[in-house]
């Protein structure tokens, strides 16, 4: 009886337009994060993605300081910032993780200082850090859909190139692939995905959408194509399950989605171990 009442309640909730927009936004972000994430983790750009998310706060705060719409400032800022960081990483002799640490912690600090001057935004810092997927608007969905189409076409049509680049750059160059062009396009797409997703899931959790579904898919895949598709599928699935559990238990939506991603990842970790335990022959010596 309790279950049926709660189920009806959730169904009613998802009939509300803002919940439908949130669900669709989550699915679109999940798919985009999954597709790009599958290459991001293999190219060891997870921390780069995290730094990008944290630094986006600087873009938003600059928008407020200059009296501009932060959403309009965020995307160009994310792209320029990502390209600048990418250039720095290629042209300095410092360790990548150390350099990224400097960039993301200092941009976070500067952003908080700027926001402290912008009195009207003090109360909304929580939304920036953790996002508010329920506030997703029609325009956000249009932008996400367009970006998903671009990402799908680009990754789909250059899949073999991306695969070879991921395996070995020198093999790709020998085949005439312009590594710098491919890298730049990928970084731009990744920064746009991060920038668009921040409104829904906030600067602290955005990298989870890129990293966790891809890691779970990696644990469950044996071919590259399967891996990319599964990563996208798990991104979408975790968004749906996370939204439903958020509605069911009245939990914050963004963190619920990330918690669902974690549950999927843990399941993906455990399943192969269980399978190997149940299928492996006994290791005990035969009894005489």
């Amino acid at each position: 009886m309790f279950f049926q009442t709660e189920f009806t309640h959730v169904i009613e909730l998802f009939q509300l337009p803002f919940m439908q927009r949130a669900l669709l936004g989550g699915i679109l972000t999940g798919i985009m994060g999954g597709v790009l994430g599958s290459f991001t983790i293999l190219r060891q750009l997870s921390f780069f993605c995290d730094a990008l998310g944290h630094s986006a706060l600087l873009g938003i705060s600059l928008g407020y300081l200059l009296g501009l719409n932060p959403s309009l400032v965020l995307l160009p800022f994310a792209v320029i910032f990502a390209l600048a960081v990418s250039y720095l990483l290629e042209h300095t002799r410092l360790w990548t993780d150390a350099l990224l640490n400097i960039i993301y912690s200092s941009s976070l600090a500067i952003a908080i200082i700027i926001l402290s001057f912008v009195g009207q935004y003090k109360g909304g810092l929580n939304n920036l850090l953790f996002g508010d997927i329920l506030a997703v608007q029609q325009l956000d969905l249009v932008l996400s859909s367009l970006l998903l189409i671009v990402c799908t076409i680009y990754i789909g049509m250059t899949l073999r190139t991306q695969m070879l680049l991921t395996v070995d750059e020198s093999l790709a160059i020998a085949r005439g692939v312009s590594v710098s062009t491919q890298r730049t396009v990928f970084i731009v797409l990744l920064s746009l995905v991060v920038g668009i997703s921040i409104k829904s899931i906030g600067v602290l959790l955005v990298s989870a959408f890129v990293v966790i579904p891809a890691c779970a898919a990696r644990l469950m895949s044996r071919t590259f194509t399967h891996y990319v598709l599964l990563s996208a599928g798990l991104g979408a699935l975790s968004a749906v399950l996370g939204m439903v559990s958020s509605a069911w238990f009245n939990l914050p939506s963004g963190p619920s989605i990330v918690a669902t991603q974690l549950a999927i990842f843990l399941t993906a970790m455990v399943i192969p171990r269980l399978r190997s335990v149940t299928h492996s022959p006994s290791t005990l010596p035969p009894q005489v």
Partner: peptide, 25 residues
């Protein structure tokens, strides 16, 4: 080879085939 890349021998050898430009996978 990064041992964590989920790519089969079939897939790797297939990458050597023909040109790599903009095409349906």
């Amino acid at each position: 080879v990064d041992r964590r890349i989920p790519m089969t021998v079939n897939e790797l050898v297939g990458l050597g085939w023909d040109k790599l430009g903009f095409q349906l996978p």
